[in-house]
Write a protein that binds this DNA or RNA. Structure first.
Lengths: 230, 230
DNA sequence: TAGATTGTTAATCGATTAACAATC
DNA sequence: TAGATTGTTAATCGATTAACAATC
């Protein structure tokens, strides 16, 4: 069914590694800003918050960009990772749903500097379509198709309430968007070939709560612990 | 060094399973809201967006809450999962950094309904400490210790700029917070026993960009594809 | 040459999944 | 009893990590 001959530069990088490449990129940027020109895997791993063996293994999927006995050139490695991720040039992004979270996202300055450009803010509520947020005017959701076509948008951000999210995703997919970052607390159904990543605030908090609960259960076993008032 | 005799109810649930329990909880809530009283693992898995074998395996770590040949009682399973996560009662939470994102988080209604209560909003900027956001007054960051002590806060949310995040985390840890949800684009250093989870918008987008880039590289191989204008 | 550090191997660990016996 | 569906087993897959030969 799928012959898929391995194309030239398409090495197969494990998903866990892909998820860490942006972390390394950020760590390298921090080092570069500090004026560091060269770093060892041990040093970079410490800044990135990972095990150095894991870092070296991850980097080995990209190629061989270090020098034994010396380490890595910060700028060179940074460029290689940025190229591998695909953020050496900007990706146009649309954000749908300009409520509290949409505002925060539109104003987030980290997008621009990290390979993304917010080309449009869309909202279904006509009362919002007069507003200008972070220099970008809010437009009607129905303009989606036109914007995606004209600006060749491949990535969409869903920041709507849960009830609207699936409809928004369907419209995005229908007009050619193939990557979606979903902030709405719903599971989105999308056709094969479309990637969805989910950011869910209360799920993150619940994971913390689970561990927190176990800590307080374990507490009575700790000998040096001072018990608070009830 | 650590004898750690297995305490009564402290079964060891794999981390990957823990991360999915909140997803099941949300799916069960959706089913309950639709009036569904009973569901099969197949049905629940579809709503939660996972494989049914994985769902059954995950649930088996909690106990045996289904009925063979019948399925699961939605309300009963929902309660059991909520209890396991620890969200049958509310966790007090403080949010530090009331910028755009802090506003969005403070206004997020999903917290209250999912086991969390925002007891304080803190900001270091005195110009913000007059504001009331979502019914909660913004207070000075220096009030952190007092609030954490008085309200027995265990979970803190960092929504500050990157430069401030480590200091905020240090202060949180110093006054007894043991779980941190970090929205600042920095790796936080914390002592053992403190859990940190990170939500990073541009990292999520970069992961999407990586896969997006590979899609366009593969595109020429697709026979039925219509090429756009440049 | 001696010291440092990479890139890779191989062992280990944890997560996923299909299959099916148990049982309602 | 027949059909449905759970809970569990076991095989497979992927990720992590220590160790070290290669090499600057």
């Amino acid at each position: 069914m799928t012959p898929r001959s391995s194309s030239e530069s398409a090495r197969d990088i494990p998903e866990a590694t892909v998820a860490r490449l942006p972390v390394y990129l950020r760590a390298l940027t921090a080092l570069a800003d500090d004026g560091t020109r060269t770093c060892s895997s041990e040093h970079l791993a410490a800044v990135a918050g990972v095990n150095s063996a894991k870092l070296r293994k991850d980097l080995s999927y990209l190629g061989s960009y270090g020098t034994r006995g010396v380490g890595y050139d910060v700028d060179y490695l940074r460029y290689q990772i940025a190229r591998e991720i695909g953020v050496t040039q900007d990706w146009p992004v649309v954000i749908v749903g300009i409520g509290n979270l949409g505002h925060a996202l539109a104003n987030y300055s980290g997008f621009r500097s990290r390979g993304f450009r917010v080309v449009a803010l869309l909202d279904a509520d006509p009362r919002r379509t007069d507003e200008v947020v972070a220099g970008v005017p809010v437009r009607a959701f129905d303009d989606l198709e036109q914007i995606v076509r004209e600006q060749a948008v491949a990535i969409g951000v869903v920041a709507t309430p849960a009830v609207a999210a699936q409809d928004v995703a369907d419209r995005m997919v229908a007009c050619g968007i193939t990557s979606i970052l979903n902030f709405a607390p719903t599971v989105l159904a999308v056709p094969e070939g479309v990637d969805v990543r989910k950011v869910d605030l209360s799920i993150e908090l619940q994971i913390l709560a689970y561990h927190e609960q176990r800590k307080s259960q374990a507490e009575p076993a700790l000998p040096t612990d001072v018990r608070g008032t009830a």
